[in-house]
């Protein structure tokens, strides 16, 4: 019941899942042991089983150890978790592997708009390809994204990829992901952005690379004289 994760479809999804599993185990054991001790104390020292309480202010060094030793163990576990966390975090958020494709992702009330740099591989030129609602990417390739927000805060969220990043007006936030197998996934907004926040959705279409290239080429096909238009 507590481990009902969606499929893990990015190359870092399994890292995040493994890290969460590590915390689940460590914290789960602590939790169960602590609850067991609490329950034992609650039953063992009820008035009918233990009529007279002892004097135990716990202010000497030897008795302090009863709580300080477990607390030190907590600290050790914290450090293990923190170390693992830093490693996974660095992989997902602090480094970007060499990317095949860069996409600009813009959140706006209440839609996702995606821009590809087009044949010249540069943004803000006439051959940019803009797509609203559906983000097509090649399977198995690292996709770099530049996240923007047009109006308010949004968050670019794809559960199966374990991908979540806030979009902030005035900033272009870089990030990356990949999709390991062909899939059609929901892109959701995970930051309250107004009345229709719930329905601010998009589709992530992971296509086999050949199919993706074909699609991309088709988008660039119109004669260069016409300005770039939004396509679906």
């Amino acid at each position: 019941m507590l481990w009902d994760l969606p499929r893990a479809l990015s190359s870092f999804a399994s890292d995040i899942d493994r890290h969460m599993a590590l915390i689940y185990w460590i914290c789960g054991i602590w939790f169960l042991v602590a609850e067991a001790v609490l329950l034992w104390l609650a039953v063992r020292y009820r008035q009918s089983a233990h009529a007279a309480a002892g004097w135990l202010p716990g202010d000497t060094r030897s008795t302090n150890a009863w709580v300080l030793v477990p607390a030190a163990l907590v600290l050790v576990c914290d450090m293990v978790i923190e170390f693992d966390s830093a490693v996974v975090w660095a992989k997902v958020k602090e480094t970007t592997p060499p990317a095949e494709l860069t996409v600009r992702v813009q959140g706006r009330q209440f839609a996702w708009v995606f821009t590809y740099p087009g044949p010249d591989a540069k943004f803000d030129t006439l051959d940019d390809i803009t797509a609203a609602g559906t983000l097509r990417v090649p399977v198995g390739k690292v996709v770099k994204f530049e996240l923007e927000a047009a109006d308010v805060l949004h968050a670019f969220y794809v559960p199966e990829l374990r991908l979540k990043q806030d979009a902030v007006p005035g900033r272009r936030i870089p990030g990356w992901f990949d999709v390991l197998q062909p899939a059609e996934l929901t892109i959701a907004c995970a930051e309250l952005c107004g009345a229709s926040h719930t329905y601010m959705k998009g589709t992530l279409l992971a296509l086999p690379p050949a199919e993706f290239d074909q699609w991309l080429a088709a988008q660039s096909a119109p004669p260069p004289s016409t300005p770039p238009t939004a396509t679906r």
Binding site: R46, Q47, L56, V67
Partner: peptide, 25 residues
Amino acid sequence: ILISVPFAITLFCYMATLYQGSIRY
């Protein structure tokens, strides 16, 4: 994550308070 340590100490102390008590429910 470090802030869990002082609160762990407090909670452990509360649990140790029950030890050898005579609990009225």
